[in-house]
Amino acid sequence: MRDTHCCVRRPVFFRKLLNAVMWLLSAGGVALAVFCMFWILWSVIRNGAGVIGLDFLFCGSKPPGEPDNGVGNAILGTVFITLAAVVIGVPAAFAGGVGLAIYGQNSRIGNLIRFSVNVMMGLPSILAGVFVYALVVVTTGHRSGFAGSLSLAIILFPVVMRTTEDMILMVPPSVHESSLALGMTRARSVLCIVCRSIRGGLATGILLAVARTAGETAPLLFTALWSDAWPWHYFTQPTANLPVLINEYTTNSPSEELHAMGWGAAFLITITLLLMNLALRFVCREKKHA
């Protein structure tokens, strides 16, 4: 009876076809992205792995043609610059995250700070270089590894702060309240109880942020620049580092030898960062499952 006022059916076939096509497309999308990931990785390994050797790792960089050419100074410089950035940025950012988590809830200023943190997180990294250039390089009159560290610290800061706040807010308030009830001061309760219960996740988050900043090039272009020297004059002179070295060797040089060195440096940095990333994720996942 009802069928009398029922009209033309839409064929299921085309809907199912569209569904199948979209499903294939989305599988294809993932496949494409993952393929590109491995393509990049493969390019780096194929061109870079062969370059790695003792000379490459432990000798300083020299103009092309000279013997015993390596990137030892750049490796050391990158370590210096990154470590200093961590020392400058992470403790303060951690404190800021703690402060925001405790005192900044549901307040207008807290929201303003949170907004600024998010804005700074999305800020193009090259602007950090420009900023530090104007602030430090112009005033002191020279480029230095320290200026590079400072620009990396600016990039690191909001990420660490946001991670800290997020992690603290994930701790149930009851944990915090019960320690307050024990007569602890706010400061102590947060530092002892809250931080202990989030130590693992927080360390992972911070290390991930550090790993990402360690590969940044743009902010170092105008601040640390690079040099063939070993980074002993970290505070006063341009300081060798891997990312800018790669940039120099690939763009400003027609020499095949330097291209190969650039790939070698790219191999070092990519493999180190990827392994670090994977290890941290693995640890994180283990913890979640435990």
């Binding site: 029922c6 009209c7 033309v8 059916r9 839409r10 809907r15």
Partner: peptide, 10 residues
């Protein structure tokens, strides 16, 4: 709309 072909007025 998923299952039937219909005119706007319908």
């Amino acid at each position: 709309r998923l299952h039937f072909k219909l005119r706007k007025s319908e």
